[in-house]
Write a protein that binds this DNA or RNA. Sequence first.
DNA 1: GAGCACTGC
Length: 755
Amino acid sequence: MANPYTRAPPLGSGSSKALGDKDPFYGWLPRRINAEQVQKAMAGDVNPFTKQPHSAQYKKILETRKKLPVFAQMSEFLRMFSDNQIIVMVGETGSGKTTQIPQFVCYSDLPHTKGKLIACTQPRRVAAMSVAKRVADEMDMPLGKQVGYSIRFEDMTEPGTTFLKYMTDGMLLREAMNDPDLTRYSTIILDEAHERTLATDILMGLLKALARRRADLKIIVMSATLDALKFQKYFSVSKGGEPAPLFKVPGRTHPVEVFYTQDPEPDYVEAAIRTVLMIHRAEEPGDILLFLTGEEEIEDACKKIKLEADDLLNQDPDSVGPLVCIPLYSSLPPQQQQRIFDPAPTPRMPDGPPGRKIVISTNIAETSLTIDGIVYVVDPGFSKQRVYNPRIRVDSLLVSPISKASAQQRAGRAGRTRPGKCFRLYTERDFMKELEEQTHPEILRSNLANTVLELVKLGIKDLVKFDYVDAPAPETLMRALELLNYLAALDDDGNLTPLGAIMADFPLDPQMAKMLIVSPEFNCSNEILTIVAMLSVPNVWLRPPNQRKEADAAKAMLTVPDGDHLTLMNVYNNYQQNSHDRGWAWNNYLSQRALQQADNVRSQLQRNMERFEIDLVTTADPKRLHMNVRQALVCGFFMQVGHKEGEKGQYFTVKDNQVVNLHPSCGLDNQPEWVIFNEFVLTTKPYIRTVTDVRPEWLLEYAPNYFDLSSFPDGTETKRALQRIANKRSRKNAPPESSSNGKGDRPSKRAKKAY
DNA sequence: GAGCACTGC
């Protein structure tokens, strides 16, 4: 056979007639391609990848592509790509990097000639989908053929045809778990690396090691300017040697003038409202984007601004135009989110002062959503950030100052369509001296139980020595290892157990994966599957401010008094029985969107169960079914137990002895002595949320290692209570329920032993 | 008697 590189094989719909002997790739040598070759191929009449004639549309799009800053540097890029295994690339907003660089790579790498793919990862699903669509158009191909995307629940690729795949970072990480060498890929592009999502961080560590094993793999890390040097050093080719080369492309945005306050503002919401109204009165036409921290703050500010703006309009209708306030946060239904794209209101009278639109948004407008036409940004300098405290194992959301990088990103939102202004509600000194350079990457702010299990499954032996871009706190790793060991996912030496290997394959927190896998032993895997799905989606309960009573009453109708987990199950079952009816969900103050998602997650998990031959079983007798479900819950959540002390209903977490309260949303009709909880949240008080009544015997029985009383701090009421139960049990000298194994409905003997 | 920054598998 001739050199395979002299002639690209015809692809998919390619017809040899159209091709003739004019294959635009004829004689091309992969990874040794220059810009002249590519330009010529792009300008040709025949699409070199499909061998079809180019459409008129294609030529049009090509002209606009040529105006992108990155296009002018194609030659430089191709040279750098030829000469290096790893490149760090910086491309500011509007450079065209996300759409163009992967295409340049296609022309140079010619992945289709070797049956490989180019991957380009994105932190968000919508981005992966929309960019893939755009690039498919640019390359004159139907989406899902040569160019596709892959996100959870949706694989828009065609095996054997697709050679450029946009995907979420989490998706590529999943693939790595089953193929640590990522052999299908010839080039991997990590886009938006500066966002430092957990998945991107882990991928960077994996790819750095993989680059040594696979000399044929090329890697491109794309980021914002501030982080480039850090990545260059991290990906230095030789140990302590040269940093990875940098490819830099200017952006194409308009200048944004930044203003600071003279003095610190004591009340940033009040200051923000004042600033917005000042802009409305005094500045040229143009829409405003105000960043606040959460739903309540946003809705509140919306009302206040509206009131004040209406006053202004009435007082001075000749110089002040109408103003419309639009809230934006993730839990808003998509339809309402769309309002941010509405045009500004029209003047009240012909020739009157023009109207203005103000969007008041959480961080969602910083990265996930771009709104065109914004000219003014008001930035109070705060956002809610997730923090994880490994000492007490609690996740919380804290309003914290943003980073410099974040502030710059926010300011940039004012310059997308024309020159803009950004009003920072803090002093220049604070910006320079007080703000951190970067937002702490997620890996430093999260519970890593899931990540650690993934890393072990990926074959990483020593988690502490893993080459992280930023290493997590050792205590966070310890907490994760400890949890996984108690769940029997890792043995005492930190090796993956067969159970752990299966757990890692479920897109779930380890606790939930564990209880799902063991649930057939309790004859309730059907129910646990539902509960796990419901726990994996956003809150299903709606509570509109003016209909709280009605919403609470509707919830009470669906509540199961034995526990919130059972209530969730009941909600899902009712949703099914009412054939996913939108009206039913609406009448019961439930989020149809969340229920639909739960349904989706449930099917995906069910497919995973089938792959591992985990039976889907249930128990006929409803009373016994509830008992069985509650026991299965213990198998996953035995480390999240609350014990009531005293009559006041004060709960203490087991072992950590933290004081916690039942969350007001809890549906229990009494205060059981022992409960398991799904989450521990720190808001106005420490709360445990999604709570179920359990029996202490179950704790001792299904989690004997964790409930080894010698490991408990002495002198606590919890320990004494458990000791009493243990004594009673040993007197009986037989497990109380498994001995009477008359009906198949009861937990089997094996369940007792294994867990 | 309270909340839900945002993403992802």
